[in-house]
Design a protein around this nucleic acid. Structure first.
Lengths: 256, 256
DNA sequence: CGCGCATTTGAGGACTGTCAACTTCCGTGG
DNA sequence: CCACGGAAGTTGACAGTCCTCAAATGCGCG
């Protein structure tokens, strides 16, 4: 583990509230491992023995059925994943695979469950993390059931703009075919969705997307704080303490 | 509160592990309230002040965007809902409405959060509950992204058969228009989906659905334990300890 | 009994998936 | 450094699915 990695892990919302002793015990049995690109880390249906912490690189969570595959989330450092399966000590519902060379910290599931028993503050942090993940999934389902493909793409681009920079050009962090699957469409239809956004000021050059008229795009996307997690909050309410936990599963992936 | 209600609440996975004192304090500040049918209990975007426990009746969780509405879950007694928002002390992402006359126990959110701080076992139970809900949502997303409408209906019927009885006739517990929304389609298309299942031995009479050839239906539905939570597990593995928590949010609603 | 709403059925259109051909991009190896 | 091969991305044609609108039917409650 490189110097600073431990600090990065400890600063995760999942751990920053834990007692130092809890953190020490949990990471004592952990080990860091490197994986090449396009490597399966975990297969859905397999028992989950570790909580994974992505320290470097990009990874993908996906699900399979009947010879079809769909991307459920893109993970970027630093984030944890499959916490839910670890808490319940059961099999994974999602597969995980690296998109590029990755560095992972693997914490034994036993250590996590033991820590929850001994450290109430850690158990609370786990609850908050899972609650944040849960709410992320609720947003995702609303996104998919209520919006069409073009609208999902438009909101995705606005979310990228809000999170990565303030400029009018955003960069897609992974291949379009993966973005297509994440957004619930085929690569062909993603192309057409980008084409449809052409009329609203969106131009594409490789992985660079230029948003010429953010206003026009927003008019089409109709972002909603109850779906998108980046949308402008209603200005009349002062109590805006939506301190959602976003460090672990479903990071900035699905809809932000 | 009727006699026995408290016992029913205490026997929920969320509470059965908690210290008696924890349970006493939490329910001390709680109150039971009755609501007529078709009443809004909670509006998405509103701060959540209570953890709700549905003691009697049926309720629905739904989301809204751009003048469209989609049903996210059907709740049946005894189950809790909006635990995630309570844990994070934030606004609701889903609205809740009664489908019929309902009896609800409302536990102040403060009491829940305090109990988590004081009782590590309760905090663990909350984590398990949220982890179970999280995994239910993952199943839902896979269900929606990987399957078509007819397949979703077929699996829903098989899930009903597995949970409610062992017979070949199942009863829909709510209106078809709500089922349609839950399954992510229009009422018109649900009708056609039922018609499509005609060829596979499914006949409909009001809210009664007869499954003449379960084998044929399964061949179409291709149920999967990693999506449906009722599907036959692979017989070669003995370790089948998937003790998922299913008592709270997302009960038998979405995909079981 | 009658009204209102849920459900069904039909027709048409919009959206999405599939297949195939073509172009572009990128990493490899000469 | 360039040429090449393979994969990614795009475009077009077509089919299948799903949504919308409209009208007819059925059901339940007042």
């Amino acid at each position: 583990m490189r110097p600073g990695d431990l600090e990065r892990v400890q600063s995760l919302p999942l751990f920053q509230d834990a007692a130092p002793e809890t953190f020490r015990v949990a990471t004592a049995g952990a080990h860091v491992q490197r994986f090449p690109a396009h490597t399966m880390l975990l297969l859905e249906g397999d028992p989950v023995d570790f909580l994974y912490v992505l320290l470097d690189g990009q990874a993908e969570l996906h699900g399979t059925w009947n010879d079809h595959e769909t991307v459920l989330a893109i993970l970027r450092p630093v984030s944890t994943f499959i916490l839910a399966a670890v808490v319940l000590d059961t099999v994974a519902l999602m597969s995980a695979r690296t998109l590029e060379r990755c560095e992972l910290l693997m914490i034994p599931g036993d250590a996590i469950r033991t820590a929850m028993r001994l450290d109430a503050r850690f158990a609370q942090a786990v609850s908050r993390d899972l609650a944040g993940g849960y709410r992320g999934l609720v947003r995702t389902i609303k996104n998919h059931k209520l919006r069409g493909g073009v609208e999902r793409l438009a909101n995705y681009l606005l979310a990228l703009r809000a999170s990565d920079n303030a400029g009018s050009t955003v960069r897609l962090h992974f291949e379009k075919r993966i973005l297509a699957s994440l957004l619930g469409m085929t690569p062909e239809n993603l192309s057409r969705a980008f084409a449809a956004l052409h009329d609203h000021g969106v131009t594409v050059e490789g992985s660079l997307v230029h948003i010429a008229k953010p206003g026009a795009l927003e008019a089409l996307a109709k972002p909603d704080p109850l779906i998108d997690n980046h949308a402008p909050r209603g200005g009349d309410i002062l109590i805006d303490a939506d301190a959602e936990i976003w460090s672990s599963e479903w990071n900035r992936a699905t809809s932000r």
